[in-house]
Design a protein around this nucleic acid. Sequence first.
DNA 1: CGCGACCTTGATGATGATCAAACAACGTGG
DNA 2: CCACGTTGTTTGATCATCATCAAGGTCGCG
Lengths: 220, 220
Amino acid sequence: MLFAITPSGEEKSAAAMGMRRSFLAREIICQQGDTAECVYRLGHGVVMLYQILQDGRRQIVDVLDAGDYFGFGDGNVQDCFAETLTDCEITVWRIREAQSCPVWCEGFSRGVQRKLGAMHDHVTLLGKKTALERVSSMLMRLVRECAGRVCRGAPPSGYATRIHDLHMSRQEMADYLGLTLETVSRAISQLKRDGLIELPRPSQIVIKDPCRLCRLAVLH
Amino acid sequence: MLFAITPSGEEKSAAAMGMRRSFLAREIICQQGDTAECVYRLGHGVVMLYQILQDGRRQIVDVLDAGDYFGFGDGNVQDCFAETLTDCEITVWRIREAQSCPVWCEGFSRGVQRKLGAMHDHVTLLGKKTALERVSSMLMRLVRECAGRVCRGAPPSGYATRIHDLHMSRQEMADYLGLTLETVSRAISQLKRDGLIELPRPSQIVIKDPCRLCRLAVLH
DNA sequence: CGCGACCTTGATGATGATCAAACAACGTGG
DNA sequence: CCACGTTGTTTGATCATCATCAAGGTCGCG
């Protein structure tokens, strides 16, 4: 499904020409190696970006939330696959047109700058953290109340019963965290044994003790 | 040394207000936790970005070349230390002023987009590659002739005698690659034993067989 | 009910970390 | 110029974490 936004009036600028597209869960948006003509912005849903090496090893390099831009590379070719994890709303621009629009560029600059900071944190996770720290850090992404970095104050009342959806299989979490699915499973089991989390079902999680989880995650 | 560029006339645009600064090797440009008012662009030289966790673990999250922008975070606070590895020329902008200038934003967008693609590759390195592959990949950075990704054609004549400076200690390479200095040293020794490289001195390297090195690096 | 996909748990093994010592490079001062 | 100390690198021996291999368990669905 592909349709143009018809901007209501103040519409000269090429940047507003973005196309809205809807995707179901588990659809591929673009492929590593595609000629990179487009930039994307995730409006709603969850998307993962991954690279595949010749021998088949897969690394999930990022998991995107609403507001994130994607579609990068060396300028000519997409460097990643992008695949939806949930139903998604995505805006697509032709990169040449978008980049010539100042308003668009400013929003893009801020978005990509923020993303780059998040990538730095993920690099530190992959380079220095233990398996348990990695899994804890990933789960802390779910704790939005912690404002991304510092866990200030107590979690909101009722938080200890809130159910989060993970959206990823153990294999996908493993490919994201630089581990194997078994190691991810073991870490999750340990967190459950220690009472930090509960799993109503394998793909859902309740975070009973976000503060202790935050400490385990070592979010500098 | 700090002096303003005095733009000769077209003095309206905030973007032109960047300050040029010179740094010697091994100077710290900005610190993790600093309030993030500035964005930087490396004009000449080599800079590393690193994060430090509470317990002292250090991860070098990026090594920058001429043209790269840096100075990121969650919008308020620098997420990294930035330290020069060589003498450097750097341009500094107040982020608020710069971001309001369309011309600046366009250049920044492109730069950061390219950098994000490079970070994806580095995440894949950290998440999936073996020690030898990591070290080989790092050394391939030195082979500019390979255009970053694909090693097309033969290296230029005389390349097998060209001496590259590494600029980093074994410990720094290790902190960049998610390894220990011993493992880095062993990988380098193996590449030397196998005739892929030579080390006129520990901090200098000659790449005798860039094609074989490229294959070892598994640059997807 | 039974099949398939995914997850958990256990046993074993390999890669890279840690611990330790020798070696090389470099600068300083006698 | 050479002894000397400092710093960084290489190499070896051992260890731990996580990967691999394997089996059993849970859940959903035809």
